[in-house]
Design a protein around this nucleic acid. Sequence first.
DNA 1: CGCATTTGACCAGCGC
DNA 2: GCGCTGGTCAAATGCG
Length: 213
Amino acid sequence: MEDYDFGNPNYSNPNCAHSFVNMATPTSDFMLSDYLLLDDDVIIDNHHQHQDQDSWSQSTESSSLAAASSNVNHEFGGATTSNHNNNIKCKTYVSKRNKQVEARQRVVFRTRSEQEVMDDGFKWRKYGKKPVKNSPNPRNYYKCSSVGCGVKKRVERDAEDRSYVLTSYDGVHNHQIPSSNSYYTTSPFSIFHSNDINWSLHALTANSSSSNS
DNA sequence: CGCATTTGACCAGCGC
DNA sequence: GCGCTGGTCAAATGCG
């Protein structure tokens, strides 16, 4: 398993020509969706034989990420940030528990931030908080407040480095982002903006097919 | 008063 | 079968 460190200027993924995005470059939209919102069938087909016993297992670079990148032929434009120390790592997951019933998508961001909950444009309702094994930090559970939208997110401090926040999004929004100045997208990680880190990722899931040409 | 958050209880999956 | 853990529910509580 490997992290995709989009915030590391020295990072290069040999299987993914455009895996690196310089977070300090305030240019055009960053088409993260093609790398992170992978086709669930691909992930399951490639990984069901060696998924661990946890509820969720991580996809590996050589299969799912490479498969995803093979379908991508556009350039990353970059994303914006006002804090060059931000370190955003992304992993893709597939649900073991639900794979027989429902294919879902999970994206995890590891972000250096003093704020635990970042404003991503969507409205969330907190529904749970649990202590995490081997971690002094609790995990918080949120659901999207929009009617009929089943997207969930979990937020917790990194056990190894409390300056990092692990935010995982589970599912895809079935509605527009409520924020008035936002792009249209159903991506769970479409836009992030806060006083602390002010970075944005424009993952235009709805338009990703046309952008591939 | 309405809404969001808190928090203990409950449930399901898994390992032993 | 039992205990542990992660995830969810829902009543209680807090706040504007």
